[in-house]
Design a protein around this nucleic acid. Structure first.
Lengths: 93, 93
DNA sequence: AAATCTTACGGGTGACGTAACGATC
DNA sequence: GATCGTTACGTCACCCGTAAGATTT
């Protein structure tokens, strides 16, 4: 598993397009497209249905998103906690 | 942030040694040692105190571990969920 | 034709294992 | 001297951006 892939998935899920997700992530479209494809291959699930020029989230994608968001939130919290600890340390002097 | 670093941290925390953690992770000792060092550098925190031939978890390390474990559990759950979805799909046929 | 997603390709960064070193039991 | 953790070094895979292709509006 890989955090970047999860972050890309969240961005595409929320924006509904690879282009918008790439903008949010400060990346190019091909890079985001690959991350999604790699994640689908790793999971063995089709998270998005390629219809026309848009990626429509599948039923599996929606089920997966709920859990993925929890994991990403937990990881984000880790960084916050670390910063809090550092700040606390700094105040001790 | 990086999942491998967190997994290495958990393994060292629970086993109390780099060697045991490396065995559990199917990696070499230097690789695990680097992951721990990289994580500490990234967080700006000293997670373990190098005493004698053992790594003793610091106060900061213990505080951080609680949150890290939650994140890792959430990630582990993702994989499980994905497998469940695949299994369910398979049963539909 | 402009926009979107995907695939191909080359370059740079990072991770790993082996080897070597210092310290401890 | 055996074990443990760290550092050095060479190699290899992975990830990204640019370029090119296919499809849609």
């Amino acid at each position: 598993m890989n955090l970047k892939r999860l972050q890309a998935f969240r961005a595409v899920y929320e924006t509904g397009s690879v282009t918008a997700a790439a903008r949010r992530l400060h990346m190019t479209q091909p890079a985001v497209s690959r991350l999604i494809g790699d994640l689908e291959k790793e999971l063995g699930l089709q998270l998005f249905a390629r219809q026309r020029q848009r990626l429509v989230c599948t039923e599996d994608g929606r089920s997966f998103f709920h859990e993925a968001e929890r994991a990403l939130a937990a990881v984000d919290q880790i960084v916050d906690i670390a910063r809090d600890i550092r700040t606390l340390k700094g105040q001790q002097f």
